[in-house]
Each structure stands twice: as C-alpha cells, then as structure tokens.
C-alpha cells in the first residue's frame, strides 16, 4: 500500500513512484533525527537550560520539540499562495496536501504561520520566543517545576523587554505573540492525534 506523509520534513517528491509505509518512514527518519538534534542543540544554548535537572530537560524537549519545529518551519508555509514548501524543495498546494489527508491540521498550521508572520519578528525576538516555547513549567511530569518557572519568567521578561524596545509604539505586539503559545499547544495535540492515526492505519 502506498502512502504519503504530508510533513515538511518528508522527502516526498512530485510524481515519484508509490512508496510503502516502511520506505516513507525511512526517508522521514533521515531528516527527523537531525531536526530533533538541532532542537536539542538549540535548547542547550538557552542560558539556564542546562541547570535544569536532566529529566526536566528531556521532559521539556519531548513535549516541545514539535512546537519548536513548527515555529522554525512556519516560514515554509506560503500563506499567500496557500502552499507548503518541503525541506526537499518540492512545493505542494493546499488542495494537494488535503488530498494526502492533512485537512484540518494543515489549515490550522497555515493560520498559525500567518499570525506569526504578521508579527514580523526579528531573528532575536524569534530566538527568545522559541526558547519560551520550550521552557514551559506547566508541562506534565516536571521534577523541579519552580526552577523551570524561574527560567520561563526570565525568558518572558527578556522577550517583553526586547519587543518593547523594538516596537515602543505597539504595546499589543507582545500580547499577540504570547497568544501564539496556546495555538502551538493545540497544533501539538492535533499533530499527535494525526501521527497516532497514521501509525494505527
């Protein structure tokens, strides 16, 4: 049975021969593991992250890797053209992706990307925001939640200060950005459900 994996990290190419589930997963793993390792490297460079217990570092990364990658890959979603460019370079229209069974999740990903893009974040703002996505004290199973919370508050203060410095006349920009955090949680849940159904299928 041939399958498609409508994920920007998939090596899916246009007009290629039908591939088995095993082939699709093997292709996917070539980009998946390096992407996760990059997220871990990013986390290690967040000041204070390595002071957390190792179990909390793992818990935060396990819970937040998808959300970090979603932020990182948001620019692959072409909101105007309603298309998604995969890391392989191939570009797919929304209807093509919907035909692969990615309707609701994909639409929500486009909505998120559009909202994030509208904030015109600088690289520095995006970096602190991404750190904040990862360092969330309310993830379940934290060993030392207060230490994570301290780091989270430090990041929130740093982000707020930077955004106010960069946009002193737009006080809503910081609030709008923080509102993207629950959006990411929702996308994370939807993605987990999708992944589960893919495996079950």
């Amino acid at each position: 049975r041939s399958v498609h994996l409508a994920c920007p990290m998939s090596a899916l190419s246009r007009g290629g021969p039908p591939r088995s589930v095993q082939e699709v997963w093997e292709d996917f793993s070539l980009s998946f593991t390096p992407a996760v390792r990059e997220v871990v490297e990013f986390a290690r460079h967040i000041p204070g992250f390595q002071d957390l217990t190792q179990q909390d570092q793992v818990t935060l990364l396990k819970a937040g890797t998808f959300e970090v990658l979603m932020v990182r890959f948001a620019s692959l979603f072409d909101v105007r053209e309603r298309s998604l460019r995969f890391l392989s370079g191939a570009s797919y229209s929304l209807p093509e992706l919907q035909a692969m069974g990615m309707g609701e999740l994909l639409g929500s990903m486009f909505d998120f990307s559009e909202k994030l893009a509208s904030l015109n974040l600088s690289q520095e703002e995006l970096g602190i925001f991404t750190a904040l996505v990862l360092v969330s004290a309310d993830r379940s199973g934290m060993e030392n939640a207060s230490l994570v919370e301290q780091l989270q508050e430090t990041l929130i203060r740093a982000l707020r200060s930077l955004i106010l410095k960069n946009s002193p006349n737009d006080i809503s920009r910081f609030t709008k950005l923080l509102l993207r955090l629950p959006d990411l949680r929702t996308l994370n849940s939807m993605h987990s459900e999708k992944l589960l159904s893919f495996r079950v299928d």
């Binding site: 095993q22 997963w25 093997e26 996917f28 793993s29 070539l30 998946f32 593991t33 390096p34 996760v36 390792r37 871990v40 490297e41 290690r44 190792q54 570092q57 793992v58 990364l61 396990k62 890797t65 998808f66 992944l195």
Partner: peptide, 27 residues
C-alpha cells in the same frame, strides 16, 4: 515520533543528543 532506521524513539534521540553521544559516530 520514532526513528525507524535506528529504532530510536524521540526520547532516546533527545537523551543521546543531550549527552553528546551522537558526536562519536556518523548518522
């Protein structure tokens, strides 16, 4: 999440990356 090529799950990949144990061998 899982890496079918190496039979590693997301948590294993994270733990290995955190410990730097990916560094001593090629992917």
């Amino acid at each position: 999440f899982a890496d079918p090529a190496s039979n590693l799950g997301l948590e294993d990949i994270i733990r290995k990356a955190l410990m730097g144990s990916f560094d001593d061998k090629p992917d």
